[in-house]
Structures are given as C-alpha cells and as structure tokens.
C-alpha cells in the first residue's frame, strides 16, 4: 500500500525528516509514536501532499510514486488525512461540503455521483454509527465545534469517503475518554483486509483502544525502533529517552 524509502523532508531549509523508512501492507495498522518535534506531523503533511516542503527519497502508494501528485489527486486516489486541528471554515455548510467531497472522490474513481436521497441515507447511517447528532451537519464546517465534535467529524469524513490509506494525526489529542472510545470504535469498525492505517500519536493511551499491528518510534526524523504493540507499553514505562 505505502512504501517510504529514505525520505528526507525540509521546510525553510530546516531538515525535519532524515532518511525515514516504512512499509505498510493492505490491512495493516501501523502506529508511529514519538516525542514533540520528532517529525510526526511533518510525515502526515508530506503524505497528504502539503506544499512548502522540499522532499527527496521514495514515496510510493499502490506501487506508484506520489512525488508529482497534488493534494486533491491524492485524496481522490484514496489517501485520507484526519487532521490534528481540523480547520474551521465559515460560510461552508458541512453537509454540502461532504457531498461535494464525496462526489469528487467518486467521480475520480469512475463511479457515479451520489444523489441527494442516497447521500442522506448514508449520512444517517454513519452519524448514528458514530453517535453524532445529525444536526451538526447543518452547521458551518467545523465552526464552533468542540474539540470532540471536530475529531468525530474527521472520522465521519473518513467513513463516508471510504479511503484506502488513512493517516490519523494525533486524533486522540484533546479528547475525553468517551469521545476517544467513539473515535476508536469508528476506526476499528472500518478496519478490513484492504485498508491500511497510519496512526500518529503521542501517547500509548489510544493504542489501548486501537490495536496496532506494528509500532514505530520516530525520533529526530528517523524511525529508531520498530516492534509490535508491546513496544508501546514499554514506551509508556520508560519514556522516549529510554529507547536510545
């Protein structure tokens, strides 16, 4: 699904990712943990195609290089980034936005645009699944949403767009235990043998709810240690300092 080889990324002449390697197969869920400033969010941004980074190394998705692929095309090809801080967008109705987004993705994948009725049905199903109030979708996109609502909205978009590769950037930050459980359930119920996940997190806490197949420790722009979920538990005890 995703193959990263010797990835270097710098922004404003500052090197942040320094030879990062990772390989994710279909159906796998990988967790990346690391201290502040280790390059976690940069990795998420680079995968989404965000502009402003100077990149070298290989970035292959479904066997093809992502180097020349723009942000929107990556989304259309099934890469989804759940934001750490979802942007508030005044004047844009959440439900209209979701439908526009879904139709863009469907069109790019050669599917027919979804009609209003089927869309409403889909929304109803997914919001119920996530324990969300449907009324939220009549509001402006993320405007005035609580931290929990914003994250749930990200998971809702993930569910609706049905991507192949899902990157969760610190989706657990700022969530209370109930919201965390809902978000985790949302991820768990989406897991199957085709989808791949890259879960970026500070804390081991999220990994009590979402069980990773692999855990990697990112430090100073590199993966310094990889293992299974036991590694996350060990990290919680020793801290990142104990790794090196």
């Amino acid at each position: 699904m995703l193959e990263i080889k010797d990835l270097n990324a710098s922004i404003n002449d500052k090197l942040i990712l320094k030879g990062l390697n990772i390989s994710i197969k279909p159906g796998e869920l990988h967790a990346i943990m690391g201290p502040n400033g280790s390059g976690k969010s940069t990795l998420a941004n680079v995968l989404s195609g965000k502009e402003g980074y100077n990149i070298s190394g290989e970035l292959n998705y479904l066997g093809k290089s992502l180097n020349e692929i723009s942000i929107d095309e990556r989304a259309q090809k099934g890469i989804f980034l759940a934001f750490q801080y979802p942007t508030e967008i005044p004047g844009v109705n959440t439900s209209n936005f979701l439908r526009t987004s879904l139709n863009k993705v469907r069109k790019a994948q050669g599917k027919k645009e979804i009609d209003a009725l089927s869309f409403l049905k889909l929304i109803k199903e997914k919001t119920t699944e996530l324990g969300m109030d449907e009324k939220m979708l009549t509001r402006q996109l993320n405007v005035g949403f609580s931290g929990g609502e914003k994250k749930k909205n990200e998971i809702l978009q993930m569910k609706i767009l049905d991507p192949n590769l899902i990157i969760l950037d610190e989706t657990d930050s700022g969530l209370d235990i109930d919201a965390l459980r809902i978000v985790a359930d949302g991820v768990n119920s989406s897991r199957d043998n085709k989808k791949s996940f890259l879960v970026i997190t500070h804390y081991q806490r999220l990994l009590n709810f979402i069980k990773p197949d692999f855990v990697h420790v990112l430090s100073n722009g590199k993966i310094v240690k990889s293992g299974n979920k036991e590694l996350a538990i060990q990290l919680e005890k020793t801290g990142y300092k104990g790794i090196n």
Partner: peptide
C-alpha cells in the same frame, strides 16, 4: 489545504471559500 485533502481542486476550494 484542508479542502484539497478532501479531493477538491485548488480552484474548487477557492470557489467554495469565496462563496462561503
């Protein structure tokens, strides 16, 4: 950036924001 990560082109994103 946020809108583009949801599959909208830069132009469509701009339009949506201007409209909003």
């Amino acid at each position: 950036y946020y809108l583009m990560t949801r599959g909208l082109t830069k132009k469509e994103s701009t339009k949506l924001l201007v409209n909003g």
